[in-house]
Design a protein around this nucleic acid. Sequence first.
DNA 1: TTGGGTTGTCTAGATAAATAGACAACTTGA
DNA 2: TCAAGTTGTCTATTTATCTAGACAACCCAA
Lengths: 249, 249
Amino acid sequence: MTDRAPVARSSSGYSAWRLISEELRLDIDGGRLHTGDRLPTENVLAERFGVNRHTARQAIAALAEEGLVESRRGSGTFVTGQAVRLHRIGLRTRMTTSLGDQGPSSTNRVLHSAIEDAPSEIARRLRLDGSRAIRIETTRSTGGQQISVSTHWFDLERLPDIATTLRRTGSVTAALHASGIDDYVRASTVVGARHATATESELLALGPGAIVLVTEALDTLPGGTPLQHVVTRFAAQRVRLDIEHPRAD
Amino acid sequence: MTDRAPVARSSSGYSAWRLISEELRLDIDGGRLHTGDRLPTENVLAERFGVNRHTARQAIAALAEEGLVESRRGSGTFVTGQAVRLHRIGLRTRMTTSLGDQGPSSTNRVLHSAIEDAPSEIARRLRLDGSRAIRIETTRSTGGQQISVSTHWFDLERLPDIATTLRRTGSVTAALHASGIDDYVRASTVVGARHATATESELLALGPGAIVLVTEALDTLPGGTPLQHVVTRFAAQRVRLDIEHPRAD
DNA sequence: TTGGGTTGTCTAGATAAATAGACAACTTGA
DNA sequence: TCAAGTTGTCTATTTATCTAGACAACCCAA
């Protein structure tokens, strides 16, 4: 249960109710408050965080709007539960399978594709040698919830049809298969976190200023030939990344 | 360079200048603005984000206070650069080595240790079977920058002296070695992201509302016997997690 | 040297967020 | 049934943030 110092709000750029709602969210998906539990009363929260009851109410209202809690007049505010999904990251990371066993009906959608010159860093990783690249923007949602948005980069010469097949199949694995690639592996993954941009907030149905987990990864053929550079932004409030540690048996 | 829609700030709980400074930070550590580059002028930024020049100034001031940019009267505001550190996560993840090759003088410090009943979920993962646990809070900093805070859980019966040896050596690996454990491996790692709590912000010298990357991991003996459950919160603005993908050769 | 463009600083006013208090509507358990 | 405790709603006030305009201090290139 939340039991921390009053919210420090000396002009941090964050309103008091936002800071409080984030603390409460922590208690909920940190496991200190379970589905069905009653939150502390508005008066208790107000006192605990050193704010007025109305401010505490606004924090609760924000969580209620997300469907995380539900207030009932006369009796209190209750955790309605939330599903944090696990996305597995490992040697054979594939979007389509990693979330599939948890949620129902999940869909990939291609938003946009274009032929461009890749930024130098990406061109280097894909070993483009001056050839152009295909950039594809996709989103993924499962169980009615937006999970992630991705930017994929492919070598235009090596995979000229990847955009159309990806648009048709909705799966990178299937699209690569259609291009004669039966297997690929994850060569590197770097994880960071930051605030969502306005565009990301819209695509992922997040409040502005919400947090995204950012993975930047390179997929290659088993031999090491680079295939895909992909940057994925996950809605941090809905996803945890589960990292695979293969045993060196 | 930032070229996005005006900041949507319809009572999001985030002030306009904070949203703008986060967008600018993105341009900087996303590689669109390099060290030495000049930011757009205050008037341009104000127009681009649809705010008053004073609001744009406040966004810049926040970045300047972090040392990310530097304003020079008459000529403009320039990126002073920033070091994002890579923390490697893999089968043999150890704090002491993973950041060591990048930065100079890095130190681990034990803040607190106590003998407690572990939360049920952690007790299960450590297979405590009713025995008590040792909880140890540590911080890590390198090159004068606070990197992370961790909460470690150990089995009291199995490792009764871990707190004192950890306090003396400053290294989990060394402390385990002193208890006769020469090797251990990372069994699982789950990564998430959220806003920092007030305590974390203080320990990591972050502004309130800053973001932490949270890893929750289990270390075991090579045979699978659980040793340590550890939750680490990294300052997201200073750290990226670099995930190891061992090749199945 | 000069003029245009940049950041720094000041004043004032408008808008939004937080505080303060009161009371109604409702639930629950004694 | 009743009393205590809870959330919902309203008004008013204070405080913080954002806007608006003006001008000084400074840099730099023509």
